[in-house]
Amino acid sequence: MAEKKRIYGRCEYPGKVEGEALVAPKYLQGFTNVAPAKGYTTERNHPLYRVPYTGKILCFYSPRGSGGFLQYGFGKKPAGFVHTKSSPLTVGCMTQGHVPAMTDFEEDPMKYIETGDTVFINADEGYIEITKKEK
């Protein structure tokens, strides 16, 4: 059985969900640089350029740019959010998205999570569990 790593943090939006992680290795940005109707980022030269995030656990350090980051909570949105640093941009996004979200962890989950891992968000109890994908 694959080993699970549990990390405690702050519930940003309550609920429980499990899904496949999609990791953004670079800041995500909203406004014109996301297409909520299509469910992917549209920022030029971004590693996740046109990579679908719908239904995934979208994992990132922190967003940048416009308050339009809230559009990540519109339309074909992720199933949940895990991110290192909270900010007014993530607050705006979560008030739109209303999906389970965790932040401000006891240790940075971005050190462990890779795209394709399984992430269980239990925001009601204040933790996430990471199960590594099979190599």
Partner: peptide, 10 residues
């Protein structure tokens, strides 16, 4: 410069 190209991602 950063935002205008996002309108033409496709």
């Amino acid at each position: 410069a950063q935002y205008i190209t996002g309108c033409y991602a496709d």
